[in-house]
């Protein structure tokens, strides 16, 4: 299963992925509109900051933070874990395995091809962000340059974690619960619900080292212009080190999942 063959097929994967995103547009919109947690959190913090800034965040600062968080979440979506567990349950997964290209290629393309659809919802968020909180955003072009690989890295982390947990569905009857647990931790430790710098220092130390941060908080920090150029570059390296690590884990998990599947059947 050569990478070259997969890359040759990739443009078609993207086209088909886009076609199916268009076919499921209603579901897509609803999904995206239900991504409202940053706004719910913004409500309480904005109320708390009525009487003055909290931990360095003014009302406007909170608005900027949560709008950026929403944007990152909207643009880095992946859902392969649901697809994997469903296909394994229905037994359609076998048919995918008979194709001469690793199924993860096609899934990754499907998830990426939905980005234009996501953009439709994300665009108004960008407009509101620019209008409401432009003063809070980074003024350094270098940070915005870093944002592209940072977003790609964030998406890859999310995608690979889902691939790993989805692969476990080959062994366990429902690995989707495991993914829910990951989501729970990630909500807290990625800065999705609370900016990491508002946590007590013990939690912050932990959160900064774990991979969750690189899924969301790091790109948001870039957009808000936190830290220095060197720090941000170091963080980018750390993010991609995590990506590489999860990539290796994905391969191992896939191989072992396949062995189990071939022994016990689906």
């Amino acid at each position: 299963m050569s990478v070259r063959a997969a890359l040759r097929a990739y443009p078609q994967f993207l086209k088909t992925g886009f076609a199916s995103a268009v076919a499921y547009r209603a579901e897509f919109l609803i999904w995206m509109f239900s991504t409202n947690m940053p706004l719910v959190m913004l409500a309480i913090w904005a109320a708390a900051a009525r009487s003055g800034p909290v931990g360095g965040y003014s009302q406007r600062g909170f608005a900027a933070y949560y709008l950026c968080a929403l944007l990152v979440r909207l643009m880095t979506g992946a859902w392969i874990v649901w697809e994997l567990t469903m296909e394994i349950r229905q037994g359609v997964f076998s048919l995918r395995l008979l194709r001469p290209i690793h199924p993860l290629w096609q899934w990754s393309a499907e998830n990426l091809a939905a980005i234009p659809m996501r953009g439709i919802v994300a665009f108004p968020v960008v407009i509101i962000l620019l209008w409401l909180a432009r003063g809070e955003l980074s003024h350094d072009w270098f940070f915005w340059l870093l944002l592209a690989p940072a977003l790609l890295g964030a998406w890859l982390l999310y995608f690979l974690v889902q691939a790993i947990i989805g692969t476990l569905a080959l062994r366990f009857e429902s690995a989707s619960s495991l993914f829910e647990a990951w989501l729970g931790f990630s909500n807290i430790l990625s800065g999705y619900l609370v900016p990491l710098d508002l946590f007590p220092s013990a939690v912050r130390v932990l959160a900064v080292a774990l991979p969750f941060r690189f899924q969301l908080s790091y790109p948001v920090e870039l957009m808000l212009g936190r830290g220095t150029r060197v720090e941000m570059l170091e963080l980018l390296a750390a993010q991609w080190a995590y990506v590489a690590f999860f990539f290796v884990v994905t391969r191992v998990a896939w191989r072992s999942g396949m062995r189990h599947y071939a022994a016990y059947g689906g």
Binding site: T16, S94, L95, R96, R99
Partner: peptide
């Protein structure tokens, strides 16, 4: 492998789309 009870056609897209997909895959 063709299984009468399992399908590989993309459910909400026309079969021609699955054709193109398989052309790329193979």
């Amino acid at each position: 492998l063709v299984m009468g009870q399992k399908q590989q056609l993309l459910w909400d897209l026309p079969p021609s789309e699955t054709f193109l997909l398989n052309r790329a895959i193979y």
